[in-house]
Simulated assay, not measured.
Amino acid sequence: MAARGPQRAVAAPAGVFRMSLRRVRPLLLALSWAACALSGAAAAADAPPAAPAWMELAPGLSAWQGPATTVLLAESEQGALLVDSELEKTAPALLQALAGRKPLRYVVNTHWHGDHVGGNRALAAAGATVIAHENARRRMAEDTFLKHHNRVIPALPAEFLPTLTLAGGGRLHLGGLEARLIHVPAAHTDGDLLVHFPAANVLHMGDCYFNGLYPIIDTGTGGTVDGLIAALDRGLSLADGRTRILAGHGPIGGRDDLKAARDMLIQVRDRVAALKRAGRSREEVLAAAPTADLDPRWGQGWVKPAQIVSSVYDSLP
């Protein structure tokens, strides 16, 4: 397990207000990292992929839709903050895309999965401070069973690990830019952060939001369907009709898209819960196909109906 030090106020670089964080001593770990590729897209073996273009969402905020997930760049006169860091193998393309932008000060990992933290080492080497929830860092720092893929993800080497962690939420001020880091417990995992830029009306939901797709609920590392619904409700409470909302997977959307995902998940939860209360086994619930009418819209991605039903069943009391 990651060593846990006393909580303290961390002095930020010039132009940055203090943020209450837990400083964690990096572990010296020798195991190599096998990236948790949650996307079927792969970079060419002999050259980095061409860097996607940045899409401006608001003044100073831009999205980069990489092969695995969507990252968000926030820039001010004092530097830049990046939300998530893609896969390790796509780090060269991400660095290429960042060339010529404001100097990168911070990287915020929304959770521990490899398609969101794989570029940490390269970005830290370029001078960024990596931040995550303490539960996410703990998952990165030890061998962790990824139930959705039925395999153990080896611990990350120390140079990938966040050097600043939050026990709850926090705020970053970079010049005139404010980022609110919001911990949503027991949602996609037990270490999820939503990243909200209130002045720009932009919200990154990480993998608490799959736009147009069934989501992954990582029940092996503390994810639950009720916690995920609560995270979606928290996102809705922060959004209005003009909010740009980034999903960990799927296109950039708005409040109506987020509400549709929340409503769908409530339907799945209620149907599976009714069958479980009636004494049906996991196999019997799967055979009953409780999502059959939802599958044409939500089940055409790489999270299949059996997977969402199974994870909801497993996370219900």
Score class of each variant (00 low, 15 high):
43 A>G: 09
157 P>H: 13
120 N>W: 12
75 E>A: 12
288 A>N: 06
89 K>R: 14
2 A>E: 08
89 K>F: 12
273 A>N: 06
41 A>C: 13
287 A>I: 03
268 V>G: 03
228 L>H: 06
303 V>Q: 11
300 Q>N: 08
112 W>V: 04
54 W>T: 01
281 S>E: 01
31 L>K: 15
126 A>G: 10
13 P>N: 09
156 L>G: 00
160 F>W: 15
162 P>F: 09
192 D>E: 11
29 L>W: 09
208 C>T: 09
56 E>M: 10
242 R>F: 08
168 G>Q: 12
217 I>E: 09
208 C>R: 02
141 A>I: 02
205 M>K: 04
53 A>R: 15
166 L>G: 05
218 D>Q: 15
59 P>M: 12
73 L>I: 03
4 R>I: 13
153 I>F: 01
37 A>G: 10
192 D>V: 01
98 L>R: 14
314 D>P: 00
291 T>W: 11
270 D>A: 10
258 L>G: 01
120 N>H: 05
251 P>S: 04
193 L>R: 07
15 G>T: 08
62 S>V: 03
255 R>L: 10
166 L>S: 06
140 M>W: 05
71 V>E: 06
216 I>A: 14
86 E>F: 12
250 G>Y: 02
7 Q>W: 07
182 I>P: 02
196 H>R: 09
218 D>R: 10
220 G>M: 11
301 G>T: 11
94 L>T: 09
149 H>S: 12
210 F>N: 10
152 V>K: 13
